[in-house]
Design a protein around this nucleic acid. Structure first.
Lengths: 183, 183
DNA sequence: TCCCATACGGTCCGAAACAGACGGTGTGGG
DNA sequence: CCCACACCGTCTGTTTCGGACCGTATGGGA
């Protein structure tokens, strides 16, 4: 799917939010975002106006212009849009510095996806965080007795704490989901 | 200090790294960043070339151009640069969605700062995370029995886990630092 | 010896993203 | 009737981003 690489996280926020809420105007999106994922995912409201337009051009949304009163555009998901969103949810999450964020985003929109998506995501995340923890632990032992960098180690500790917390979360989630599936 | 608002996190990464390593070329920065804070703070290497130049213009760095061989520029901190960096470390960390990142950054460079900086930072962070946790808990109880959003709650759980982890870290750090100070 | 692969060191540029100022349009109340 | 204010949206100049691209050394294999 070629459109996919013209899409950014913001695109999926828009698609996902419309998928959850149904047809929406930009302002609706603005408020919805502010009250929900806006808590952990930031972007300037201006993009909530330009992004849907782009998505219309890509055929993932369709716009309907109100004639009476203020001319507001209402966007609704096309079949292609829904397909794209679901494909994204089903697709492996590229490991990356922003990994946590992307994964959170996918998790947030999970209900739009398919059965196994959450489990897959969780498995990936468990693996990724384990790996990261290994890297950090390695750094820690390697520099353990270098006084010069001792002070910097503290950041590492924070990193480890966070990684462990994430790992705990995804592991627990995986367990829950696995149980459900086998039930 | 008027220069301060021409500075971005990236600027402080540059200043801080040079403060820690001593005079450095852009390439040095590139590698140093890659091996240390690059693990949790991303940016494209191109900025490690343009940013120091900007900082020279602002008087926070001075450049020395090697004549023989390849013409590489070595940057060193000026007194103003060090002052600026220390001021930043001492300054309250604006609460923000990116708060965690900024705080991590300050923590990483803490050894350049003054005595009380870490404690102050930790106190701020403890307060900020507590507040955030309160907000999340509030959301949770408020939406607790709305089936419609039940699936979305899962993200909230992740958020809470992470917040708690951060809170634990900063609290522990605060204790340690406080002990040291009173000793 | 010469050539090629690879690491080093750096520049450049088009495309997004960003912050946030700005500007209309309803609407309720004094 | 008019003013204040919340609503809704646009626009713009600056940064940032990713990543393609380009020379220069180096060293090791043919």
């Amino acid at each position: 799917m070629v459109v996919a690489d013209r899409l950014s996280p913001t695109s999926y926020v828009v698609l996902g939010t419309i998928a959850l809420r149904g047809p929406s105007t930009s302002y609706d999106l603005k408020r919805a975002v502010g009250r929900s994922i806006g808590y952990f995912w930031h972007f300037p409201h201006a993009q909530l106006y330009s992004e849907p337009q782009r998505l219309v051009e890509l055929g993932l949304l369709e716009a309907e212009t109100e004639v009476e009163g203020r001319r507001r555009r209402t966007y609704r998901l096309t079949d292609e849009g829904l397909a794209e969103l679901r494909a994204w949810l089903a697709e492996p999450t590229p490991e990356h510095f922003q990994m946590r964020d992307i994964a959170e985003l996918k998790l947030f929109f999970n209900e739009v996806g398919e059965q196994g998506d959450v489990a897959r995501l969780a498995r990936e995340q468990v693996a990724a965080h384990r790996e990261r923890i290994a890297v950090y632990e390695d750094m820690r032992t390697r520099y353990a007795d270098l006084d010069a960098v001792a002070k910097r180690m503290i950041t590492l500790r924070l990193g480890l704490e966070m990684e462990h917390a994430a790992l705990r979360f995804w592991s627990a989630l995986l367990d829950e989901v696995a149980e459900e599936e086998s039930a």
